[in-house]
């Protein structure tokens, strides 16, 4: 295995995620936390939930990004070490859905930081989030 393949293999096998709520209604967050429960248990794939952005590879962001959270979201993204990826989980995070055009939201994670994978659903099922992670893996494998 060449060094590049080796590092790619390691990256695919141990994605550590950070969960950030930028004004979600909390349903998406419960679905994200459900990933860690015995039923779905994403530690099987080496996915661990981390508390600090310094340790994380993937930022799982939920919510429509309120004006207050926008700056924090950007800051947390900047705290993460490269290479970093962002998943927008939920209809809110993708486009602002039910909260679109509210005076206090920006409407979507991608208004603030670049997003790699969108997971639609209100809230998305844990299976859908896992599917989103596999889509992200394909993107990493593709050598972006």
């Amino acid at each position: 295995m060449s060094p590049i393949n080796l590092s790619k293999w390691a990256r695919l096998k141990s994605p550590w995620v950070l969960h950030f709520n930028s004004g979600a209604c909390n349903a998406c967050d419960i679905e994200v936390v459900a990933l860690l429960t015995p039923r779905y248990d994403v530690e099987r794939f080496g996915i661990l939930l981390k508390g600090t952005p310094r340790h994380a590879d993937i930022l799982i962001a939920t919510g429509p990004v309120t004006r207050q959270a926008a700056l924090r979201l950007k800051r947390i993204y900047e705290l993460m070490p490269e290479p970093k990826f962002v998943m927008a989980v939920g209809a809110c995070a993708s486009s602002g859905a039910p909260f679109k055009k509210c005076y206090n939201v920006l409407g979507g994670i991608d208004k603030v930081i670049p997003v790699d994978v969108y997971v639609p659903g209100c809230p998305p099922k844990p299976e859908a989030i896992i599917y989103g992670v596999t889509k992200l893996f394909e993107k990493i494998k593709g050598g972006s």
């Binding site: 080796l6 590092s7 293999w9 390691a10 990256r11 096998k13 141990s14 015995p38 248990d41 530690e43 099987r44 794939f45 080496g46 310094r54 590879d57 070490p81 490269e82 290479p83």
Partner: peptide
Amino acid sequence: RMGPSYTGPFGILQPLADYIKLLTKEDI
């Protein structure tokens, strides 16, 4: 739960993958 299962046989290479990944990441 099942614990790490798909990285090598029975997920036994999981810690190795974690360390290699950390070594290739940006160091702030």
